[in-house]
Design a protein around this nucleic acid. Structure first.
Length: 109
DNA sequence: CGCTTGACACCGT
DNA sequence: AACGGTGCCAAGC
């Protein structure tokens, strides 16, 4: 250890950021990508990273949704159904696959 | 080393 | 307002 400057992957950085999202709040793939400090649209890669998230739901990737307020996806155990359940449990209301008061609950880091 | 994939976002119709 | 096509990025094979 010690000698690896990058030992941490792009995906790992995504997970780290996700943990910063407070309970009861949500963020978007776009914002996460933006916070990564990269130019261009890396939100695509963010999605791929979260898809492979082995730490769900320990890493609250379920708090990351699409920019238009729709849920996006969830590959972890239980699928999208679980995502909705987790969100509701944390106080986020979901209706018709959309986040209620999206702008309000949005966490902009 | 290049092609394909994917939990998105944006623009045009 | 809803749908479809296009573009970008990192990872896997």
């Amino acid at each position: 250890m010690g000698n690896r400057r990058h030992g941490i992957s792009f995906a790992d950085r995504v997970y780290k950021l996700c943990r910063k999202i407070p309970k009861g709040r949500i963020s978007t793939y776009k914002l996460v990508g933006k916070k990564m400090g990269r130019r261009g649209q890396i939100y695509r890669a963010v999605g791929v990273a979260l898809k492979k998230n082995p730490y769900a739901p320990k890493v609250p990737c379920h708090r990351v949704v699409a920019s238009d307020g729709s849920l996006g996806g969830y590959s972890a155990k239980g699928g999208i159904k679980t995502k909705i359940k987790l969100l509701k449990k944390e106080g986020i209301q979901v209706k018709n696959n959309k986040i209620i008061d999206f702008e309000k609950k949005l966490f902009r880091f």
